[in-house]
Design a protein around this nucleic acid. Structure first.
Length: 904
RNA sequence: GGGCGAGUAGCUCAGUGGUAGAGCACCUGUCUUACAAACAGGCUGUCGGGGGUUCAAGUCCCUCCUUGCCCACCA
């Protein structure tokens, strides 16, 4: 029966994942082992997972699997985030598109019903995608930020904050998102630099003595101007101070003020002041007691105060106002102006700053912030890459109060109440209560209502590491798994989320929420632009999984997942994606090498059975006990290749451990790749072939394969597990639960000796290839003294690997005419089948090009050796090494030159 | 405007102060006891530019250029 020579991941991955689930492999229960816990960053239920998620889940699952095999009690706790504003936005959009209705048309209850339906659909879909990627998470513990128990944690935290006096109702200039009719936080604002205009407007002095030119990027706000300001020391305007200005179009008299804020160098040095519509003007208005006139309403349409412009959209109004100003001679000029425009990152609308009464949480000076700073400073929370510590601290040092309330419907209602007839604008009207009963008691009335506002979605995710583990209950899981081990996330939510988890963790658990914060790279497209939905340059990880399998996607991401800031990922073109394809090829290589080993098991089952399809009545074959006590590798090391591969394996284990342990997954992936492909497949398996009929060889190859599968499992989980369960005696075991291989001592002698074999084999092959020699024939090697015994002992191996008959000669040059390749371990000569002129020419060309390279290297070495002070100042070992290389090259050159001469 | 990265082969990326590497692509062979998604061999570089430190710089310092990300209430 023919075996598939290609690994087909689709069915295998689904099947093996099902087995893991059914066996409860991902379920975590506290015990006496050391815990390793990750509470995953809960994805928004807004839609599908993107490449950034794929990267992050690959990292978390890889580390989780590695730690599990290393004996830790691993819990990776999954969940999803209700993502208030983001989810509300997509559902509103959908309803608008499908039913042409707004949320107000539906009403709060009906709308929320629709959002829950959405959540159920997408929550399930997201879980499906994580499972498709192979994530070994404890699905029984799946949490959602609007679960009932989670909600109680939120109420509790809010109440505690309130008791501590950190929660207050205050008026601030907020970022107002017109589509949502809600305030949003600074962190939800996307500041984009754009080309705009600077309109220069002429404001006449009321006394007719002249006018003042002001410059503005938002001319429509001029309707709400209540002053013009200049710098107090600005000589140009000194004598005008105190005069009145008549506002064009409006006719209002407004003062000319002096304020330090004004930059005399910008524009004309005179600024129009619109306290209601600009954060700076708002401040200045407060300083000077200016009236605030609202000319743009919450819906971004002009208000009644805008007179003739009332009802117009703000941008329509801008056009009209500019036109009118121009018509009346008040427009001096329009300059192109590059400036920053704030956008609402969820709706894409331009933010309209406006004063608004909102609930805030005090930040600066509170324990919340002080402890969160302390946790980073003393290293109890460890940032990886380390540079993020400084970035975090700088932000914490300048932190501003946190606006908590949102005028949305999807989220946790604020637990604040007032009497129905009390003034909602007055903070004295409000009390905090977690239940209606308690509120009634506190307010002494039953005619009460709860604030319609909901909490910032980050308020709930801020509690994630402990609320998911059962807080405020003192659950066994909470005490066992908290603080968690790792938070792996994207850099864009360092402030929004990471900082706030540290604050609440310190506050309510008295301890940091996690040991390490790993900030993974951002996935960019081939042009180095950030992948995003709005740009349409994203790749759907599921497409890649369908094309190449989850393991290939995972491995391709791990190869890039170090401490870099960016990862470039090419698009899928013609159904191909180069990076994942390379990883898929590796998976296929592992598959085929394993197939080969399975076809040559120590005690062969029936030759017709397909060893990679576990069958029910499979032959029971017990693999020999090759693992010594304590997990030390003690495989039989009889031959040179055996001793060599064990040493190489040990090196690979060390490198993978080091890479995974330091969040340099790219190093780990490279080490694993090169060990398996270059060392195991290209040399060890090849070297085993001549004696493959013997059980001794078969056992040793099987042993190394099994160790390699363990080593690779965290990186390519489905593939390695599938192979593992096809191994004799392992049908009912799980690779993912095997102990991770431990590195032993390196065998320097074996590595040095095998290197001799490799170099001689490579030299022979190079000559064979250069001259297109047929199989068979002879090769003569004149070895150096230290290489001789190794070559004699391994002559059979070299002969097999080169398909040549090897003659190891004690004497140089006796083999006469032939193709020559000097090596570090001796000269290699291949007889020429016939002295055709073409062959001679080819040989001459080969030698000449080699000589050219030697000359180049020699020139470099000469320069170094003859440099003044080199011999004196450089370390002795370096000098000796350089001299040895120099001598070696000289000798090589001499031999090749001589040979060239013989060729005529 | 401030902060932090990145620039190494055609592409994606490694690279401890000691002669520049891998995979892909490309070229030449090859159905060799698993694997053509493979095997064997080969080609490929002003290490962004310019200064400096050093016996020695892709690596350390300065500077400029290009590019990305984060932060920022100057109209």
């Amino acid at each position: 029966m023919e075996l598939s020579t290609r690994y087909e991941p689709q069915e295998a991955e689904a099947a093996i994942y099902k087995k893991w689930l059914e066996a409860g492999c991902f379920t975590a229960t506290p015990d006496d082992r050391t815990p390793y816990c990750i509470t995953i960053p809960p994805p928004n239920v807004t839609g599908a997972l993107h490449m950034g998620h794929a990267l992050n889940h690959t990292v978390m699952d890889t580390l989780g699997r590695w730690k599990r095999m290393k004996g830790f009690n691993v819990l990776i706790l999954p969940g999803t985030d209700h993502a208030g504003i983001a989810t509300q936005a997509v559902v509103e959009k959908k309803i608008k598109a499908e039913e042409r209705k707004t949320r107000h048309d539906l009403g709060r209850d009906e709308f929320l019903k629709r959002v829950w339906e959405w959540k159920d659909e997408y929550g399930t879909r997201i879980v499906g995608q994580m499972q498709r990627l192979g994530c070994g998470y404890d699905w029984d513990r799946l949490r959602f930020t609007m679960d009932e128990s989670y909600a109680s944690a939120i109420l509790r935290v809010f109440e505690e904050f309130y008791k501590r006096g950190w929660i207050y109702l205050g008026e601030r200039m907020v970022n107002w998102s017109p589509p949502f009719l809600s305030a949003i936080s600074d962190a939800e604002v996307d500041n984009r630099e754009e080309d705009g205009s600077l309109w220069h407007l002429r404001y006449p002095l009321t006394d007719g003595s002249g006018d003042i030119i002001v410059a503005t990027s938002r001319p429509e706000t001029m309707l709400g101007d209540t002053a013009v300001a200049v710098h107090p020391t600005d000589a140009r305007y000194a004598k005008l101070l105190g005069k009145k200005i008549t506002l064009p179009l409006v006719g209002r008299e407004i003062p000319l003020l002096a304020d330090d804020f004004v930059d005399p160098a910008f524009g004309t040095g005179a600024v129009k002041i619109t306290p209601f519509h600009d954060p700076n003007d708002y401040e200045m208005g407060n300083r000077h007691g200016l009236e605030r006139i609202e000319v743009i309403g919450p819906d971004a349409k002009m208000t009644a105060a805008a007179g003739a412009y009332a009802g117009l959209d703000r941008f329509e109004a801008r056009k009209k106002i500019v036109a009118d100003l121009d018509a009346q001679g008040f427009l001096v000029k329009v300059e192109p102006h590059r400036h920053v425009v704030p956008y609402c990152d969820r709706s894409g609308a331009v933010i309209e700053p406006r004063p608004s009464r909102q609930w805030f949480c005090k930040m600066a000076g509170t324990d919340l912030v002080d402890n969160a700073i302390q946790a980073a400073e003393d290293g109890s929370v460890n940032f990886v890459p380390g540079r993020y510590k400084e970035i975090y601290l700088r932000w914490m040092g300048n932190i501003r109060d946190w606006p908590l309330s949102r005028q949305l419907w999807w989220g946790h209602r604020l637990p604040v109440w007032r009497k129905i007839d009390a003034d909602p604008e007055d903070s004295q009207s409000w009390i905090c209560a977690t239940t209606r009963e308690s509120a009634i008691k506190q307010l002494g009335s039953e005619d009460i209502l709860q604030s319609e506002d909901v909490l910032d979605t980050w308020f709930s995710s801020a509690l994630w590491p402990f609320a998911t583990l059962g807080w405020p209950e003192k659950s066994p899981s909470l005490s066992y798994y908290y603080p968690t081990s790792l938070l792996s996330t994207a850099q864009e939510i360092l402030y929004l989320w990471v900082a706030r988890m540290i604050m609440t963790g310190e506050e309510f658990m008295g301890e940091k929420p996690f040991d390490d914060v790993y900030i993974h790279a951002t996935v960019l497209d081939e042009h180095g632009r950030r992948m995003s939905k709005s740009k349409g340059n994203g790749i759907d990880p599921v497409d890649l999984i369908e094309l190449y399998g989850a393991d290939a996607l995972r491995f391709s991401l791990l190869r890039e997942a170090g401490q870099r800031q960016d990862i470039r990922f090419k698009p899928i073109r013609d159904n191909r994606q180069e990076q994942v394809e390379q990883a898929r090829n590796f998976a296929n290589k592992i598959w085929n090498a394993s197939r080969f080993v399975l076809m040559n098991l120590p005690t062969s089952p029936s030759p017709d059975s397909d060893p990679l399809t576990p069958s029910n009545g499979g032959t029971e074959v017990t693999s020999p006990p090759l693992l010594g006590a304590g997990g030390q590798m003690t495989g039989p090391g009889e031959t040179l290749p055996d001793r060599w591969i064990l040493s190489r394996l040990s090196g690979a284990i060390e490198a993978v451990d080091a890479g995974l342990g330091s969040y340099n997954m790219d190093d780990a992936a490279r080490a694993a790749f090169s060990f398996f492909w270059d060392d195991f497949c290209d040399w060890y398996v090849e070297a085993a072939k001549p004696t493959l009929e013997t059980d001794a060889t078969r056992e040793r190859v099987l042993f190394v394969l099994k160790e390699a599968l363990k080593l690779l499992h965290p990186l390519l989980p489905h593939l390695t597990e599938t192979i593992w369960q096809a191994l004799p005696g392992e049908t009912n075991t799980f690779l993912m639960n095997q102990p991770y291989p431990a590195s032993g001592a390196r065998d320097a002698l074996a590595e040095a000796q095998f290197e001799i074999v490799q170099e001689i084999v490579t030299a022979i092959r190079a000559l064979q290839a250069a001259h297109q020699l047929k199989k068979g024939g002879e090769a003569f090697v004149t070895p150096t003294d230290d290489a001789r015994s190794v070559l004699l002992e391994n002559a059979g191996l070299i002969e097999f690997l080169t398909r040549i008959t090897l003659k190891v000669s004690p004497l140089a040059g006796t083999e006469g005419d032939g193709f020559l390749q000097p090596t570090r371990f001796g000269d290699v000569r291949l007889p020429r089948p016939e002295s055709s002129p073409e062959a001679t020419l080819a040989e001459k060309k080969r030698i000449e090009s080699e000589l050219l390279k030697i000359e180049k290297d020699l020139a470099g070495l000469n320069a170094r050796l003859s440099a003044p002070d080199f011999a004196q100042r450089a370390p002795e070992a370096v000098v000796a090494k350089t001299r040895a290389q120099h001598a070696e090259l000289l000798e090589k050159r001499e031999k090749l030159t001589e040979r060239l001469g013989q060729l005529g």
